[in-house]
Amino acid sequence: MSVDKDTVRRIAGLARLAVPAEKLEPLAGELNGIFNWVEMLNEVNVADVPAMTSVVAQKLKWRADVVNDGGVAEELMKNAPEHESTFFVVPKVVE
């Protein structure tokens, strides 16, 4: 599998990273370097191997259904790049 310029453009779009046109080609080269190296995993037969879902033997923790958080709108706004009262503000989103 080989990554080309268009693939890099598509992935960058999915990842919401602006990549200048002239950087697409070099990035494709770098990624190919990495993916070629990773290809060695294909040597291993993993047909009957389960994928790892959890590295520790631990049961998922559950919480009780109680309200003990929230009410921090002002606190949240302190780090906000732009806000109006306690709304976060972003450029108009067109539906």
Binding site: R63, N68, D69, G70, A73, T86
Partner: peptide, 17 residues
């Protein structure tokens, strides 16, 4: 999270980190 689900609160006031 432990934030409330009640309808109609002030904006972002039923939001935990």
């Amino acid at each position: 999270s432990g934030a409330s689900t009640e309808f109609g609160a002030e904006p972002n006031n039923q939001v935990s980190f």
